[in-house]
Write a protein that binds this DNA or RNA. Structure first.
Lengths: 121, 121
DNA sequence: TTTTTAATTCTACATTTGTAGAACAAAGTC
DNA sequence: GACTTTGTTCTACAAATGTAGAATTAAAAA
């Protein structure tokens, strides 16, 4: 299932807070803040999409993400690699490595990670 | 500017064909093919968004992408890195390297690319 | 217990997206 | 010249998205 752009924004806050009441979410939203009913509507839709769950505390709900940020991102990235790199992570990796401006330290760190993976086998 | 999901699909075909008449686009679309007016509508919207241009040949138009696939993808990826990795390409790179299953050869190729970049300075 | 606060549900409406019929036009074919 | 192909524009409409007021409720505070 996919979140709309605005829903995804909200999800980012929820991922950060881990669990939050409506009020707490509203508190962290940047100005101009939407109406509370707007956020409530979004949350309801996200629940319908099974991306958010909640726990009842008294009469109100403490919301939490039902998908991890990593998991959600991973799927998103995979879809992108499928359509833009013909499903080849290696092709994507080489594009990324070529195109991104990483500094020496960052490149060396990457090298480290790859070395570790190579040994790991 | 951003394309909707369906518009993006169509764009992929246009990127592949480079330039195409409506008919040619329809020809490559997978079954079940949409009505020609559907594609025409999408193209018009993409033109409004300045993502597609055309050249008049007789009474009809030869459409072409006004953004490159790489360019469009690059922006998309950057936005994702901004929101999921706090704008740190290095953080993303390390997530990717950790999480993706590349085989030995692919890892070695990556290593190659990184080495080249390191020397390049 | 009256009032306030925080939340929830319902309803509503504008915009964007996905999809396509109807109508019309030009260009090529018979 | 009549017919077919290809394309374009207009109009339309359902679904999804972005946004929020009104009404209602329950808990908390005074």
């Amino acid at each position: 299932m996919k979140l709309s752009a605005t829903e995804e924004q909200l999800m980012h806050h929820l991922w950060k807070l881990k669990r939050a009441y409506l009020k707490e979410l509203l508190a962290v939203l940047p100005d101009p803040k939407p109406a509370k009913t707007t956020v409530a509507t979004l949350l309801k839709r996200m629940i319908d999409k099974d991306m958010v769950g909640y726990e009842l505390h008294g009469n109100s709900r403490q919301y939490y993400p039902k998908v991890s940020k990593r998991g959600y991102f991973g799927k998103k990235l995979r879809r992108m690699i499928d359509s833009y790199f013909d499903a080849s992570p290696a092709a994507f990796a080489s594009y990324f490595a070529e195109s991104t401006k990483l500094n020496r330290t960052q490149l060396e760190e990457l090298q480290e990670i790859i070395n570790r993976k190579l040994e790991e086998e």
